[in-house]
Design a binder for these strands. Structure first.
Lengths: 134, 134
DNA sequence: GCTTGACTCTACAGCTGCTGTAGGGTCTAG
DNA sequence: CTAGACCCTACAGCAGCTGTAGAGTCAAGC
């Protein structure tokens, strides 16, 4: 299979696939006579795992490490590592959600102040983190 | 005021402040005899606005543009631009929240599957965007 | 007067995870 | 034979900084 085919099937760009290879996160597939990359089922599977993990927002290096364990059939290690990773990811997501909520609240307050006629330079105050005048 | 002082008061690093200046988002302050940057009240105020807007996750260029209008006293323009920006930011936040929720749901499902003893390589499927096997 | 430590300066590399561009080669259909 | 869709490499760029190297400056304490 050519790079465009695997990329299409996995919903990524050919550049991304080359990028993974260049970073050593995927083994280089064999090349056809015209020097085109030629992906076999194993290559495809490994890339599929990598892409699937990336869609779960797993950092690239961790995703690659898990994918390699996976194709080596070391499922138990993978399972353990993966559950830990999932825990971390979900904690991070909770954190980011809280951040977004906080941000949204501040933006709402800013908007309300502006509607009420507050001058922008006063409405834009520093929030939490460092105080100044307020 | 020296760069470390303004940075501390605004809760950012001196490098960040230099970075803003280098990118033309802040005017270069005058220099003391020893070539240290010397920030006056106006410099400080402009930086304060910039930092405040950044804390609201306003993109750097937009934040800089608003800050300059602000210190020029064109409050009405600022107010209008700012309200529009706030609207965009909040929409973006809602979008990102939805993404995070989606992600968290998928991670939860993955975790449940792993707990139930599913093999990782099957549990890690591609979600929405491109189908494959599921 | 000397050292120590905390600051300042410039200039540039690196981070994440790709995307885009330039400048070429290759394959396929009409 | 040509047009268009693909493939190749190599490198620059994005956001918004952070970190590092190498050097100067300043205040306090001995």
């Amino acid at each position: 299979m050519k790079i465009g085919d695997v990329a299409r099937r996995l919903g990524v760009t050919p550049q991304a696939v080359r990028f993974y290879e260049e970073r050593g996160l995927l083994p280089a597939p064999k090349r056809a006579d015209n020097d085109y990359r030629d992906y076999g089922p194993d290559d495809f599977e490994r890339l599929r795992l990598l892409v699937g993990l990336r869609q779960l927002d797993v950092p690239l290096d961790a995703a690659a490490a898990l994918a390699v364990l996976c194709v080596q059939g070391r499922c138990d290690d993978v399972s353990a590592g993966l559950r830990e990773l999932v825990r971390d990811r979900r904690a991070e997501i909770a954190r980011r959600r809280a951040e977004l909520d906080h941000l949204d609240r501040n933006l709402r307050i800013l908007d309300e102040n502006l509607v009420a006629g507050a001058k922008p330079e006063h409405a834009i105050a520093l929030r939490e983190g460092e105080r100044d005048d307020v």
